[in-house]
């Protein structure tokens, strides 16, 4: 049992992190806003982001869910925008999805992210009406009449992986700030009231990590539902605590933390909601 990522998997994670760090600086994200960066999308396609799990014979990278989870975790860390999960899952079936020349979104329950920017929309979105999206980096449409669909386990898991990445990032951001910011003559991270918030952020993120990685190995739908539930909690509550640690700065538009919170709220509604996940987990008892 070697649960921790292998050397190859860690190298993959490093490579994706370096690529995204260069392309997803917070300022660049804000400037792009609700417009999709097509050049970046094609670059992601060339690096195998979308075709990661396609067999090599079909032009893919031939890797599995564990590798995809590590890659999507990195995407979540830097708030990489776009219908990443839908396009990744469409690779091999929708022409151009795998190489990043086609942007694919899909109706996900009652929500469709990135409808206007997408080249291909999966599912019926004819009744879709635009929403004034809480997340400035994720345009949304609502389908008022849509019945709740059956969750696609792979989509749920990859969304959970993005949440995990966000939880890791907000934990690091909060800890860094708590070490730098001084009040009463010492770093605020020396105060237990603050350091305990940070400790709880790490606990939630590490539990979610074990759940998400294990679900990637087993691909069991119930385990995936559990991973999504815990990753949602880690991302949403992590962003809330990160905001709190930042004090007044956390409430500003300038700070990055609100973008993590808003995206985490959006992802919590995508793939499988908490209510759906909890019912699935209860039914399995």
């Amino acid at each position: 049992m070697r649960f921790q990522p292998t050397e190859d998997q860690r190298a993959l994670r490093r490579g994706v992190r370096e690529l995204l760090a260069a392309r997803c600086a917070p300022q660049a994200l804000r400037t792009a806003g609700a417009r999709l960066d097509r050049a970046l999308w094609r670059e992601l396609g060339r690096t195998g982001f979308f075709s990661l799990r396609l067999p090599e014979a079909e032009g893919g990278v031939g890797l599995g869910l564990p590798e995809a989870v590590l890659v999507f975790e990195e995407a979540g860390r830097v708030l990489l925008p776009g219908p990443l999960v839908a396009t990744h899952l469409a690779a091999g079936t929708v022409p151009g999805a795998g190489d990043g020349t086609t942007v694919v979104t899909r109706a996900d329950g009652g929500l469709v992210p990135w409808l206007d920017e997408a080249d291909v929309v999966l599912g019926n979105s004819s009744d879709a009406v635009p929403v004034r999206s809480v997340d400035p980096l994720t345009p949304l449409h609502r389908i008022p009449s849509a019945p709740p669909g059956d969750p696609d386990p792979a989509a749920v898991l990859l969304t959970a992986a993005e949440q995990l990445g966000s939880a890791g990032r907000t934990t690091e951001t909060a800890v860094r700030y708590a070490k730098e910011r001084e009040q009463f003559g010492r770093p605020i991270g020396a105060f237990q009231a603050v350091k305990h918030l940070c400790a709880q952020m790490l606990v939630r993120a590490e539990l979610a990590r074990a759940a998400v990685y294990a679900a990637a190995v087993t691909a069991d739908p119930v385990e995936i539902a559990g991973a999504k539930l815990l990753a949602d909690e880690a991302a949403v509550q992590g962003a809330r605590d990160c905001l709190q640690v930042h004090g007044g700065m956390g409430f500003t538009w300038e700070a990055e933390v609100h973008l993590h919170l808003k995206r985490a709220w959006v992802r919590a509604e995508l793939g499988q909601t908490a209510a759906q996940a909890e019912e699935a987990l209860a039914a399995a008892l």
Binding site: A211, A214, G226, E278, A282
Partner: peptide, 21 residues
């Protein structure tokens, strides 16, 4: 209550995985 038990299923499943980790 049912959903609460569902969440506990996720919780203890993940604690088992964290143990393995």
């Amino acid at each position: 209550l049912r959903r609460r038990l569902g969440r506990l299923n996720a919780e203890f499943g993940a604690l088992w995985r964290l143990t393995q980790w």
